[in-house]
Design a protein around this nucleic acid. Structure first.
Length: 291
DNA sequence: GACCAGGGTAACT
DNA sequence: AGTTACCATGGT
């Protein structure tokens, strides 16, 4: 990969294992907007980004080298060799080759912990378009307005401080439904220090998971998503309705409990389980595996 | 109108 | 310990 400054933009050339559409559309994040073919805008870490990809070239519009190195390089996990990861996964089980080949541009982006926690609480028993809509509304209502785009108001995901005083009723007005008390409890536990990001990062994955599950509305699946997408735990393997179908189709016969599927995958893929999960999820869901 | 969506909780056996 | 109704909302 080769980085250079082109006027106000940062251009990355010879980018490997990177497809901006697959990265954003694979279901790991929700705060983005598609502008065209491989042309997106997103907000993360209070920063706005317009990014477009032409083959192996990725253009980060109106981005300083400082912003690129301090935010976007880490966000898109650009120092990680996904070629090696994919090779190792196929060595672990060559039945992954089809999904990996179909979605070879996926990367697990490094998302903000608090945003990931609230987002995946909202995700439960919900569909992706509606999750995106709720997060957009939530950001618009409680998030800071970034003035990056003249004449337009773009809102970042709300910070903890802005959420502290939010009530269940206000949240229900945003159509989060039965998830409202769950969000209130999550905010309260983070604000009160019961849930602390630094502590979680210093725990084992199993310890951090059970700590997250002390939040009302956070079960095994949501906790695993927070671990994988918000805390960099690549050994986490979230099993939702789609992963259940896909894994049953590939490895089991008939109805299998999510916990059984999860421990099977963690045993099989080890420290790379999270990557395997994302290739399988996006590929399997798009193919409609298991209906 | 039933069924489904990146589930979890509480109240049952 | 293992199952089951119920939880809001919008789309098919």
């Amino acid at each position: 990969m080769n980085i250079y400054c082109d006027g106000k933009n940062i251009v990355a050339e010879d980018v490997c294992d990177f497809d901006i559409a697959e990265i954003l559309e694979c279901g790991q994040c929700f705060n983005f907007n598609c502008l065209g073919d491989h042309d997106y805008e997103l907000v993360a870490y209070k920063s706005y980004l317009h990014v477009r990809q032409e083959g192996q070239r990725v253009i980060f519009y109106d981005t300083s080298l400082d912003a690129f190195t301090s935010v976007w390089k880490a966000y898109f996990d650009l120092d990680t060799d996904y070629g090696m990861i994919k090779k190792s996964l196929i060595e672990a089980d060559d039945r992954l080759a089809e999904a990996i080949e179909a979605k070879k541009g996926i990367r697990i982006i490094k998302q903000d912990f608090f945003e990931t926690l609230i987002s995946f609480i909202i995700s439960q028993n919900n569909n992706i378009p509606r999750i995106k809509k709720i997060i957009q509304t939530l950001s618009c209502r409680y998030g800071a307005c970034t003035l990056s785009v003249p004449g337009r108001e773009i809102y970042a995901f709300p910070e903890l401080e802005a959420m502290k005083a939010v009530t269940e009723e206000e949240l229900r007005a945003l159509k989060v439904g039965f998830r409202a008390p769950y969000i209130v409890d999550a905010v309260s536990k983070v604000a009160g220090g019961t849930i602390d990001e630094t502590c979680l990062r210093n725990m084992s994955t199993a310890e951090a998971r059970s700590c997250l599950m002390s939040i009302k509305g956070v079960g095994e699946k949501v906790a695993n998503c927070v671990l994988l997408f918000g805390l960099g735990r690549m050994d986490a393997f979230p099993v939702d309705v789609w992963m259940k179908r896909i894994m049953e189709h590939m490895y089991f016969e008939g109805d299998t409990k999510k916990e059984t599927i999860e421990s099977f995958a963690c045993e099989k893929f080890g420290s790379l389980a999270g990557y395997a999960q994302q290739y399988l999820f996006f590929y399997g869901k798009e193919k409609g595996i298991g209906r």
